[in-house]
Design a protein around this nucleic acid. Sequence first.
DNA 1: ATCTTACTGTTAATCTATAACATTCGCAAA
DNA 2: TTTGCGAATGTTATAGATTAACAGTAAGAT
Lengths: 148, 148
Amino acid sequence: MSCKHHHNCEKAAKLTAEQLCETYGFRFTESRKQVFEALISSHKALTAKELMVQIGNNQPPITYRALEFLTEAGLVHFISSINAYIACAHAEDEGHISQFLICKECHEVEEFQAPDAVCLLMQSAKNGNFQVSDTSIEMLGVCSECQN
Amino acid sequence: MSCKHHHNCEKAAKLTAEQLCETYGFRFTESRKQVFEALISSHKALTAKELMVQIGNNQPPITYRALEFLTEAGLVHFISSINAYIACAHAEDEGHISQFLICKECHEVEEFQAPDAVCLLMQSAKNGNFQVSDTSIEMLGVCSECQN
DNA sequence: ATCTTACTGTTAATCTATAACATTCGCAAA
DNA sequence: TTTGCGAATGTTATAGATTAACAGTAAGAT
Ligand SMILES: [Zn+2]
Ligand SMILES: [Zn+2]
Ligand SMILES: [Zn+2]
Ligand SMILES: [Zn+2]
């Protein structure tokens, strides 16, 4: 599978993940690895259920725990508008804001960055004296592939 | 309750709602009215369950149907990051993009507009040849009231 | 009057996520 | 080595959110 969507793909990302875990004293265990690999090897966003099917696990807590861990570690993002998870494409950039283009045909998801837009949004919030802790930008539509 | 957050509040909004329904040949029925009024009279975002409690209805389909109708009519927005619904503050501006400041303390939600930021985001999508049909911007944080 | 479509009432099912608790694992201090 | 501790897992069951299905009613058009 090609990798136009990830800055550092699969192997590199796994390395980043392992290092990140070690840095903070956590373990990149088997179940976490399984979930992460399932996500990084698919550029699509996967629901918890789809993940469970893919890694052959029908015990929800195991998958949900791995997802919670990976999400908190910043290795995976949760896309609330479609209730699905995706491996982060910029994990090395810690604490960055999540911005997604989500194709409703093929479910492929591209994580992109538009710092200038984010800046304007932050400005808006600041004008309202609102202290932002978490921002999510989710754009649903049809990707270039699926427009044909 | 004061109305710093709505451009046209309660009565006016209800009127807009009724007109909008009539225009498209739909009815502003009792259950829809109940749900809409519960939302418009609270500036907070309410979950489906909270709504059901508030309008004294424990038959999910009724509430969910009303919510689906109101959402499709553009009178109510669904805020996916917190699984809650809020009455739209700009219903007269049809098809506008949803942007929210969501206070995680008091759960009050402000719908705001930042057209220049949206413009930049659209540009980003366009550069990737991505055809956007629906955009949601959700900023979680602490409102000015709750910072004290 | 009857036809059609929108809308409601009700029951039950499905999908999604978490609680609770016992067990094991990895690691470090005694 | 062994003891102790927190992190992580295994397992069962439950809670919570949303929808399917189908029968029935209401309102406007012809
Ligand atoms: Zn990311
Ligand atoms: Zn696509
Ligand atoms: Zn709105
Ligand atoms: Zn607040």
